[in-house]
Nucleic acid binder design. Structure first.
Lengths: 208, 208
DNA sequence: GGCCGCTTCCCCTTTTTGGGGGACCGCGCC
DNA sequence: GGCGCGGTCCCCCAAAAAGGGGAAGCGGCC
């Protein structure tokens, strides 16, 4: 008989940690070896407990789940990261997969689905439920924003005018307008307000 | 010795339900008598199990936690509703309290805090952690939007132009501009993009 | 009755934004 | 070298939005 699958749970909500642990604890082949509530805690727990699978929330203190995933995948190539989150923005999904996550499931999943997902991930497989895969496909159809366009759409979401953006970035306002036109085309919108909303809806920009 | 406090958990995420139940189940004076994942389920569970305290998420299928709270408070005046959610928008808090919730806590809370909150609510008290109370106070300083202004800010968030809004509402675009000016003043912003962002940030309008 | 808030519409003006074109530079890539 | 892309800036122009004022009808409320 093989050894039990060692699991680390990373989430800043105690209720979620308890819930996930309970959902997995009923299965004898799993062993929840540690829990963490932020990025530094997750990394030190990986160091100390050497889990096989990490259940990772995206919005955690200390840098976010994507950064944590990246760090874990770089240092311990054999560890698998399964994102377990409530965020269903296509950009979040895309970034998580890019960072090396082996799967991306939403917190609405059932106990049986979670158990199956952990097994699949531990076996080297990928887990992308249909609704997540659909969003990821949608993300594929969108052109990547250039670094400058990303800065500008962030400032748009902060409610800045073209002149303010130009001053912030130290460029002319005609350049801002040029970037904006490209941005509108890439996002498929007609004005700055729609651009701001779309950026939020897709997770390109996060509020707060 | 008094009877145990009967608790209903309403949340569409199995992991959260399991977690909250586990956090409360360790206390002998509590009894989780039922769980529900949507509004109709919550109401029928109240009917059947007559809980003392309902732990309620805000974003649940079938109408939302605010509607469910309102319905519960109207039919069973003795039941207490404690909102347990991740949403920290001041408008959400305000609406929940208006609907008759006895408390509003965020999912980041610890097991001990949850236990204390349930006891307080069951005893007829109110539970508003400092960060929640601060947001509620912030909401108080904001003027209420009129029904028309609410419709318009929703359309702004949908990216509609003044002309489109006028056509949608069957009024002239000069009237839309008048409403917009009042809206900008009430929200303390200078243009429609900022208005859209502020409306989302405060929970006045929800995306999707 | 008088006041206030909401809604509607009108006038005026200025500023901002969006839509098109073109141009130059630097960089990486084939 | 040539090509594309990203970034910068420029022109012109039309449309939209914003900022200011006033005004009227309507309802509720004191």
């Amino acid at each position: 008989m093989s050894k039990r699958i060692r699991i680390l749970i990373v989430d800043d909500h105690p209720a979620i940690r308890v819930g996930l642990a309970a959902m997995l604890g009923s299965q004898p082949q799993f062993s929840v070896v540690a829990e963490a509530g932020d990025v530094p805690g997750a990394l030190s727990a990986c160091e100390e407990h050497q889990p096989d699978v990490v259940l990772m929330d995206l919005r955690i203190p200390g840098g976010g789940g994507v950064d944590a995933t990246l760090a874990i995948r770089q240092r311990w190539q054999t560890m698998r990261v399964l994102i377990v989150t409530t965020f269903d923005r296509d950009e979040d999904i895309h970034r998580a997969i890019q960072a090396g996550a082996s799967g991306y499931v939403l917190k609405g999943l059932t106990s049986a689905d979670l158990v199956a997902a952990v097994k699949t991930v531990h076996g080297g497989g990928k887990v992308l439920p249909p609704e997540v895969a659909t969003l990821l496909a949608e993300r594929m159809t969108r052109k990547n924003l250039s670094p400058r366009e990303l800065e500008i759409v962030r400032l748009i979401v902060q409610g800045r005018s073209n002149k303010e953006i130009a001053a912030d970035l130290g460029i002319g306002d005609e350049s801002v307008k040029t970037h904006l036109r490209a941005l509108f085309t890439k996002l498929g919108v007609a004005d700055r307000t729609q651009a701001a909303i779309e950026a939020i809806r897709h997770g390109i920009v996060h509020l707060e």
